[in-house]
Amino acid sequence: MIVIVSGSGHRPARPLLRGLGGARLVTPRTLAGPGTRCDPADLPAATLGTRCGTLAAGDVTAVLACLPAVTPWDLPHIAGPERSFVAAELTALLALWLQAPALVVNRPVPGSLCGRGLDPGDARWAAVQAGLPITARSRAETRLTLVGDRVLPGGADPAAAELVRALAKALDATVLCVRLAREPDRGWCVHGVEPWWQAADGEVTAALGALIAEGAR
């Protein structure tokens, strides 16, 4: 089973939700007990309690992590004064659950359930550290998405595709959506990043499906 974990902000694009047949969407709002049991010493046996029944880690082949953290805005059903606390606890729970041995795209890092490649500031500093060119232009010219080793849409300028690959390596991201702009004297430069799951079209979704199938083998 493929699981898409998403919050109320930055919802996944429709092709992603429709294109991965049978994928189960888990949102903070659907996380409702009882049924959650996560023993850090036995994560393959972990379960999540959801409104649609219990989700066993052992049944999950891949997880698409599409939120950096659970926020109070994800939890309108929780009483106001408790929302921040419950949001922080659910974030901590998901951070643990995502350590279970399924393919997770992108692997969580401390402070972000969906790995790096979402925070524009982080991406720009990472680019600078990796010696990649960045631009201060107000507008990007193009947007490319890396899925595994494929850069989409196909037929992108090879120099731009190489820049995306290099940034993904610097951010340790398997999937990454990068905005680029071309400077007259420096060529393609990193303009910023954005949530890949919002930019996912049919081509990106198909590539993700192939990546998951490959990872499951």
């Binding site: 850090p40 922080a88 643990l96 401390p110």
Partner: peptide
Amino acid sequence: RPSASATNAAKACQGL
């Protein structure tokens, strides 16, 4: 560094 500090925001995970 903030990314290192963030391990403490998920204690069971930090426990690993």
